[in-house]
C-alpha cells in the first residue's frame, strides 16, 4: 500500500529526468525551440526582476560614481605629476635647443673665419666689476695665446689678454682700455673703437669730413692684426663732436650682448708669422669683405 508513497520521490525524479532529457534532445537536435513553460516563468519573475534591476542599477551607479571619483582623484594627481615632469623636460629641451642654435651659429662662424679658430665657453666674468673682462675655459693647451681676437656669431667680443694652460682671460670690447681699428661699413670711414662709454663703446678719430650717420654699422678693418676684416662691432646710436674739431666720433651700441654671452670663438691673428697680412681664404669673411663693400650683414652675422 505504501510503496507508491514511499517511492514517489525517486519515481517522479526518474520521470522528470526523462522529460528533461527529451526536452534537451529535442531542443538540441531540432531547429524549433520547444519551451512550454518559459513564457509563464518569465511573466512571473519579470516584475521582480525589473524592481531588482532598478535597485541594483542605482547601487551600481552610486558605486561606480564613487570608484570614478577615486579614479579621477588619482588621475588628477598623476596628471599634475606628469605635467611637472613635462614642464621640466620642456625647459631642458628649450635650453638644449638654445644651446644647439648657439653652437650651430658658432660652427658656421668658425667655418667662415680664416685659420684654425678655437671654440671656448665663458666660465666667469670679471671678479672686481671695475673692468670688463671674462674668463674662457680653454688656454694654451688648446692653442689660445695672448693677443688673439675673440668673436661670437653676433660680432666682436674682445681680445685675449692672458692665457694659462687651460684658461684664458679676455678683455671685452666694453672695457675702456680696448682699442680696435674699425670701419664704417657704409661709407668706409676709418676710426678707433674704444670701450667705456654709456652706450658701451665709442668710435673715435673719424675725420670730420667723413660721412657718419646714426644707424651706421661699424665693422673691423682687419688692419690691427687681431681681428679679420668685416666683423660686426656695433651700430652708431649717437654722434659726438670731438674737442679739437678735426675729428668726429659716435656712440656705438655693441653688436654682442655681453650679459648673455656663453660661447665664443677665439680666432688666430690674421697676420702671418712674418707680420704681413695673410691672404684671405676663399669663402671667408675677409674674402667676402674684399669682394663686395659694404659687407652684407647676413654674412658678418651668420
Amino acid at each position: 500500500m505504501n510503496w507508491p508513497r514511499l517511492h514517489s520521490g525517486p519515481l517522479t525524479t526518474i520521470v522528470l529526468l526523462a522529460v528533461s532529457l527529451g526536452l534537451l534532445v529535442a531542443n538540441t537536435r531540432g531547429p524549433a525551440r520547444i519551451d512550454p513553460l518559459s513564457f509563464s516563468l518569465l511573466e512571473i519573475v519579470t516584475p521582480f526582476a525589473r524592481a531588482t534591476a532598478s535597485v541594483s542599477q542605482r547601487i551600481t551607479a552610486g558605486w561606480t560614481a564613487y570608484i570614478d571619483l577615486i579614479g579621477a582623484r588619482q588621475e588628477r594627481d598623476w596628471l599634475r605629476l606628469r605635467l611637472r615632469q613635462l614642464e621640466r623636460e620642456f625647459d631642458r629641451h628649450g635650453a638644449l635647443r638654445d644651446e644647439n642654435q648657439r653652437l650651430q651659429a658658432l660652427l658656421d662662424l668658425r667655418e667662415a673665419v680664416p685659420g684654425q679658430a678655437v671654440a671656448a665657453r665663458i666660465t666667469g666674468a670679471d671678479a672686481s666689476g671695475l673692468f670688463r673682462t671674462a674668463t674662457l675655459g680653454k688656454g694654451t693647451a688648446d692653442g689660445i695665446i695672448e693677443g688673439m681676437g675673440v668673436i661670437s656669431p653676433d660680432g666682436v667680443v674682445g681680445r685675449v689678454i692672458s692665457a694659462s694652460l687651460h684658461a684664458s682671460r679676455v678683455l671685452l670690447l666694453e672695457d675702456p682700455s680696448t682699442g680696435i681699428e674699425a670701419l664704417v661699413q657704409r661709407s668706409r670711414a676709418r676710426g678707433i673703437v674704444e670701450g667705456g662709454s654709456s652706450a658701451g663703446c665709442r668710435l673715435k678719430f673719424v675725420r670730420q669730413r667723413e660721412d657718419l650717420v646714426i644707424g651706421d654699422v661699424v665693422v673691423t678693418s682687419g688692419r690691427d692684426g687681431v681681428f679679420p676684416r668685416g666683423l660686426n662691432i656695433g651700430t652708431v646710436t649717437a654722434l659726438v663732436e670731438e674737442e679739437r674739431g678735426l675729428f668726429q666720433g659716435a656712440e656705438i651700441s655693441p653688436a654682442v650682448d655681453f650679459a648673455r654671452l656663453e660661447d665664443v670663438l677665439v680666432v688666430p691673428s690674421p697676420l702671418s708669422e712674418t707680420g704681413t697680412p695673410r691672404a684671405a681664404e676663399p669663402g671667408s669673411l675677409e674674402d667676402a669683405a674684399a669682394e663686395s663693400e659694404p659687407i652684407p650683414e647676413a654674412e658678418a652675422r651668420p
Binding site: T12, T13, L16, S20, L21, R33, I34, D35, L37, V45
Partner: peptide, 28 residues
C-alpha cells in the same frame, strides 16, 4: 519527495528560461 523533484525541475526550468541554454539542460 515527488514535490521536491517537481521543485528541482521547476528550478532547472527557471534557470533554462533565464539563461541561454537550450530548454531542458538545467532541468536535466
Amino acid at each position: 519527495t515527488a514535490g521536491g523533484a517537481i521543485g528541482a525541475f521547476l528550478l532547472g526550468y527557471l534557470l533554462d528560461t533565464f539563461s541561454g541554454s537550450p530548454p531542458g539542460l538545467y532541468c536535466f
